[in-house]
Design a protein around this nucleic acid. Sequence first.
DNA 1: GGCGCGGATGTGAACGTACACATCGCGACA
DNA 2: TGTCGCGATGTGTACGTTCACATCCGCGCC
Lengths: 347, 347
Amino acid sequence: MTTETERPIEPDRVRAPNIRDVARVAGVSYQTVSRVLNDSPNIRPETLQRVRDAIDELGYRPNQAARALVTSRSRTIGVLAAQTVHYGPATSIQAIETAAREAGYRLSITNISSSEYASIKSGLDYLMSQAVEALIVIAPQVRVFEAINDLQVGVPFVTLEATGLSSDHSLWVDQVQGARMATRHLIELGHTEIMHISGPQDWIEAEARMQGFLRELGDADLRTRAPILGDWTASFGYYAGLELLRYRDFTAVFAGNDQMALGFMHACREMGLSVPGDISIVGFDDVPEAAHFAPPLTTVRQNFAEIGRRAIALLLGELRGETDLSHDPVQPELIIRESTARASRLG
Amino acid sequence: MTTETERPIEPDRVRAPNIRDVARVAGVSYQTVSRVLNDSPNIRPETLQRVRDAIDELGYRPNQAARALVTSRSRTIGVLAAQTVHYGPATSIQAIETAAREAGYRLSITNISSSEYASIKSGLDYLMSQAVEALIVIAPQVRVFEAINDLQVGVPFVTLEATGLSSDHSLWVDQVQGARMATRHLIELGHTEIMHISGPQDWIEAEARMQGFLRELGDADLRTRAPILGDWTASFGYYAGLELLRYRDFTAVFAGNDQMALGFMHACREMGLSVPGDISIVGFDDVPEAAHFAPPLTTVRQNFAEIGRRAIALLLGELRGETDLSHDPVQPELIIRESTARASRLG
DNA sequence: GGCGCGGATGTGAACGTACACATCGCGACA
DNA sequence: TGTCGCGATGTGTACGTTCACATCCGCGCC
């Protein structure tokens, strides 16, 4: 005699079927149903089938909350992101989402509105309140590390698109290498006066690209000039261009991303300068539109999706207790199009 | 005598503090702590303070899983999305995320890889397995409605950026109106032979823009020609342009989005045609880069963020049981830049 | 033929919270 | 002064699942 029969019938209140309902229909105990749900071995094929039929018949779905409560595993991976409207982060997140879902994890994404410490902390706080099991950071990372320490985030984490500082937890396209490739390309075309428009200073990847740029210039014994600190937007590239082109003491520009390159080319047109006739320009990212800019943009391609997939693979490995967390940086690729040409003489 | 004292001490196993731990520290019952957490009235200020201090001291965080279990409310809103890397969806999602978080909801986003029924169903299935309380759809909607019916999704939902078919559940920028504005602008400039490059047929918004285009043309008694069905990408716009421009029996193009407009302008350059001298082009969306295209693109601005915010507001209202779900479409805005000019004579 | 063993299945308890209800104390009112 | 009402707080229970342990059965072995 089971206790289930004593439960009063509630005709109005429709309750989702639970594990005991399934058990009753299948004629087994609820524990057996649980075993079926968790792919436990040692179940008679006949029993297995009966339980599966009962599940289908009732349209039963396991209650994730109850599972999470008893196992104290949320099966959630947190993503702390900034600027998710941009092509790079968006592509990575999409890959992360797919990979996570396949591994039975869900994602909790939160956008931070500014790179201020308070904003980062509040985003992190939000994610921790959801008991995420791991953390992926796609954001200006300089202050994020502080926040992760301060909040005693006790879960595995990786940062995307960063480089250098904390290689144990970073997964990255080799930004320095990419920047060097872009710069070397310009040098090889005979440019000696090269300008760099960088991303915001607190983005590690902006910093890395700047480093690559400066190192390559140093290796070639060329004059280095202070990079302009931008904000990744096309508008910034445009206004920076209007300003810089008044002097015209350079023949090439390496932009921190494709958007700023686009804005800069706009400024060139407006100043009556030809790209690449007067000014050569290289971007970074290879957004899908870059091939159709005027002129089509020479740029550095990053495999954002690959980075996303690797992030999940790395975290899952760590959650499983694996210790071999080696990860080579993803290599970027220089895509040569029509925005670069041999250096013109400075007028 | 409480039972807590009987619990054996486990020094190695660190357990997150729970509501009873807080109660013990604050010297109250766990129910009082629960009341504090849920902003219940009728708590003595002094007691309130003691509980809050205890919470801070222990670093206590409510266990969401336990909450979800007992209330049978997941506090999760599902987002079924496609093409999240695009500017429009990405912007909307960001706004949704912010609004949801402010309202105490989290988001579960899933991308569908194709617009096939199986893919939609599997995405929907995934979201339902998370017991989402409401659903936001940003995807090709034609088949989504079928899937929502088939799966007996018993939760409130809205579709974004759609129009027409199911106005009860749709929240939209008035795409028809936007398309009419774009088309009328071209007509007013004297263009009579106007081409339309549309988005994929199964996107309702593509359909709506096409409808607006055709209606405006009809109202002006102009010849209508079969729109080209594209895929939203710049590359498609480019190749379509190369093909179409061989005939040059039109002087203006209304593109379904800014990316296709960009690709088309690229094709114009390659064919030696001037924009807007020979061909006028209007886009749709007003992505941030559009102002820096060559030439800066005349386009229809949509307030994606507003749409996202409204979606959450609408769903929260429905969850609260409000019945007044009236929602006016968001009005788009024509942004006139330099890619349109008076019609040239056809050569 | 008794005993041990392991495969298959069942029972009790716990996870952390919110809801329904019970209790306590105190002031107002008849 | 007794009682009613209400503000403030405490106790029991349920949510749906998994884990640890218990039980049952049949088979092989000495």
